[in-house]
Nucleic acid binder design. Structure first.
Lengths: 217, 217
DNA sequence: AGATTAGTCTAACGTTTGTTAGATTGTTAT
DNA sequence: ATAACAATCTAACAAACGTTAGACTAATCT
């Protein structure tokens, strides 16, 4: 099939395998989900809003590019990111896309309705304030993702339970909500709800992948 | 044609445009070439060993992903990398590929026949030695690429002219030859020639892209 | 043992690619 | 003017891809 004349071609061919893995929107979404922690095919399919068959096929591609690894646990197959370099790559290709593609910036603008709701992205000072208790860093992702990895001093209330567990949050303090990253809508919805309920809430459009925090197995 | 139900899909779709651009071996090769400096379609086609038609088609894709830009100069069309972030991305996807794909590491091993010929990759001390004149940093790429960007204190002798211009190199000093990067064979050939002629020669498997040196227009 | 669940494999489809050839545009040289 | 050159556009083909459906495997539950 492949009959490359020069050795050089083999090199670029291999690198292109990574590019190919990153050339499908759904595969990128799966990578982002796996950056939050290990997951089963079933979970991934549900969270990416695709059929399990399609998820399985895409994960097959990701595994062929050695970007994800699997482990069988009973009747489940657990998928996880191969290592932190993969998460870094996801952040890196996304940031290049935002740098180069006006269309992407426009979609993002359209999504983030109120720029005032954005938290300043100075990580160090945010951690300092969270440590002192001046702000509440709120992780609104599902509980298992919080368990796998979370930002320093973060507290976990999944978005589904937020309405019922509002009392756990002190009213006086600013709540900084975050989720899976800039393309995830959970933190945005959380901020909307919190503000409606009279809280001082901001969204941090970053997550564990952006902060370079690797999920534990 | 495209009817994405959720706004989120639009985001991943845009990022996938970058992945798609990076999913073809030849496009990656073109990106690497453009990291050395701006070039015409004709030059790119020749240096990537493809027809001008094919080069034009691939460059069209790269331009659609906004990774390269063009400028018409007379009957020539000059292509250049959009900005430094593109070069950084090339280095980043390549390093992920080397991290994840054993096959790639095997091809590289096969290519670099003698590990003894590799220069230590401590950039700071190399620059220090080059400044003092203890080593000669030799750029063996075509002259125009040297002009567009080169490593600190490097001297230019294109590989084609090396045999005829050997006298320009002092015999007592170590010659550290470099070219377009780890996938380029020019420096390897230069080292082979120099050693045959009695020089103390090493290869630096990095280039301007790896050092983060942006070419000037 | 039989039914259920999670997941993969295979085949099939329509679509999108990579690649080449032929015609076309714009610029420079004679 | 005409020829030569650089580059793109169009059309065409085979190969590769995304997606879905159906059959299948393996583990769990009743």
């Amino acid at each position: 099939m492949n009959s490359p004349r020069h050795i050089k071609d083999l090199l670029y061919e291999q690198v292109a395998r990574i590019g190919k893995a990153a050339s499908s929107p759904k595969r990128l979404e799966l990578i982002e989900l796996l950056c939050q922690g290990e997951k089963t095919v079933d979970t991934l399919a549900r969270e990416a809003s695709i059929s399990m068959k399609l998820a399985s096929a895409h994960l097959r591609e990701l595994r062929a590019a050695r970007l994800v690894e699997t482990e069988k646990q009973g009747k489940y197959v657990i998928y996880r990111i191969a290592n932190r370099a993969v998460a870094d790559f996801w952040v890196s290709i996304r940031s290049l896309a935002e740098d180069r593609l006006v269309e992407l910036r426009m979609v993002i603008e359209q999504m983030v309705s109120h720029p005032k709701e954005l938290a300043p992205q100075d990580r160090e000072s945010l951690v300092k304030m969270a440590r002192k208790g001046d702000v509440v860093v709120l992780d609104v992702r599902p509980a298992d993702e919080f368990l796998a990895a979370h930002l320093p001093f973060a507290r976990s209330i999944p978005i589904d339970e937020l309405k019922l567990r509002l009392s756990e949050l002190p009213k006086g303090k600013t709540v900084v909500a975050y989720c899976r990253g800039p393309y995830c809508l959970m933190a945005r919805d959380a901020v909307e709800l919190l503000r409606k309920k009279g809280y001082d809430a901001l969204r941090l459009p970053e997550g564990v992948a952006e902060w370079g925090i690797a999920p534990v197995r």
